[in-house]
Structure formats: structure tokens, C-alpha cells
Amino acid sequence: MINERNLPIFATLIVFMMLYGFGMYEYRGFRDTLVFTNLLTDNAFLIVTAIGMTFVILSGGIDLSVGSMIAFIGVLMAYLITSLGLHPLAAIAVAVLVGTLFGAIMGIIIAYFDLQAFIVTLAGMFLFRGLAYLINLNSVPINHPFVTALSDIYVPLPGRGGLTFIAMAMLTLLVIGIILARRTRFGMNVYAIGGDSHSAALLGVPVKKTTVKIYALSGLYSALTGVIFAIYTSSAYPLAAVGVELDAIAAVVIGGTLLSGGVGYVFGTFLGGMIQGVIQTLITFDGSLNSWWTKLAVGGLLLFFILLQKGIVTWAKRRTSPT
């Protein structure tokens, strides 16, 4: 029997397949593998951020700083490569380290000063955006042979599609995320904290340490997003990725993760991100609709999913309450 808590992720899968099926039925071009691989490439940055966000939301928290983090890391990376002349690999290593460290610091403040994640990461959101401007006010192109080589990597697939470097990076990070969530003690601790942090502490889960790790992980994933975004656009811009934190939260929730924590899957988040991409692609294929229709569809879906989750939770409660 399907566990009722797994219903949202099945709903997500069905919505994704229906949207994709509709596209294949309606448009000849949609049937090509190119559409799918483009989806992977174009939504890689959103999905990678959202994977980090999944851990945060699973633990019952929120991270509003990821959008700014993406911009900051991109600008930092461009600065290290173009102004300081660092090799891109070294620049990426430094940037990712900085992102993880900043995430960990937010985690420490949240866990040890017992502050709300919303406020702490809101502060982070402003700080990182400000830091990005501090480094550079304008858009900077990143012209380094290594970066160009990375963005030129392409594994052709049957049909016209193929996997780009960032699509493969995203898929790798997705697999790591899934393993981390379901097959490690850290992952189980995240679920436990989100389920009931008081009980988790009594069961011996190191709640504070795990919380720091969660935000460090979100910092790491959003820093990697910054790197991917910079490679994707071959440039860095302090105003990049404004509002991506909200898109990421939407992807996580549409992916079936409970906003109150404890229930959800990383793979669901992948589907949640892909659904947003499919809607955008469908609107592009249609041609007559404005791209803002994406927002309308995503908003509607989001509403549908939170109502679905609420319904399931209420139903489950009623079923198990003593009669």
C-alpha cells in the first residue's frame, strides 16, 4: 500500500508526466530528447539550489539567503579569475569554501543563539547581495579557456539532445543529495529534527551540530549554484538570481516536501524544479502567451500542493487519533 505521506511526491510525478505528455501530444518538437536535456541544463541552477533548500526545509527551517549567495559567489569567482588571475579551479574551490563557511555561520547563529532561521537568513540575504556589490557593480564576463572548455563539454544522446557539463553536475549533485538524505546518519537526523526536534534531542540526535551542518550544506549547494550559473552565463552579475530563493522554496514544496519539516524527498525537489521548467517550455512552444504565465501556473500549482498536503496531514491525524 502507498504510504499516505508519499502521496505528494506521487502527485508531483503525475503532474510532471501529464505536463510533459501534453507537450509531446501537442507539439512535434517536444518529442525530441533535446527538450528534455535543455530542461536539465536550463533548470540546473534552480534545482541545485533547491536540493540544498530541501535539507533546510526538511529540518523545519528556511534559507532566504540562497539567491544572494548565488550572485555573491559568481561575482567573487569572476573577481578571483579576472582581477587576481587565479586558475578557475582554485577560484571555484575558494568560492565554494566561502559559501559553505557563510552558511555554517548562519547555522551557528540559528542553532546556538536560538534565533529564527527566517530572520537570520533574511539578514544573510541582504549581506550577501551587498557584498556582491562591494566587489563589483557591473556585469563581468568570465573569459578563461578553462571555463569555456567546461561549458563546451557535451555528451550527445540519441535524438538531437545531449548532456552539458552543468546538466551532469546537477545530476551528480542530485544523486549525492539523495544518498545524503536517505542513506546517512546526517540525513536521518535532519528528518528527525524536522519531525520533532524535542524528541530528536531526547533520542540522542545532536540537534545543534546537525543544524549547523544543514545550513552549511545549503550554503555549499547555493555556492555550487553560483559556480554553475557563472559557467552557464559565462559572466557574473551582482543582480543575478534575485528571487531564486522563492523559486527554490516553490520547487521544494511542489516536490512534496512538507514546509513544516520531517517529510519529503530530494528526488521530489528535482521534479518540482523540472515542473517549473516544463511550464516555461510549454509557454515558449505556445508562442502566443506571455512568459509571466509561468508565474501564474507555478502559483496555482503551489496552492494546489499545500492544500493537498494539508488535506493529507489532517486525514492522517483523524485516522490515527484515538476514537
Partner: peptide, 13 residues
Amino acid sequence: IPSMSVTENLTLQ
């Protein structure tokens, strides 16, 4: 943890 399975609860940590 009510939202986790019995196995997950029994083997946590």
C-alpha cells in the same frame, strides 16, 4: 518521531 517509519525510529543514531 511520528513522521518517520518504525525502523527509522528504532535505529536512529
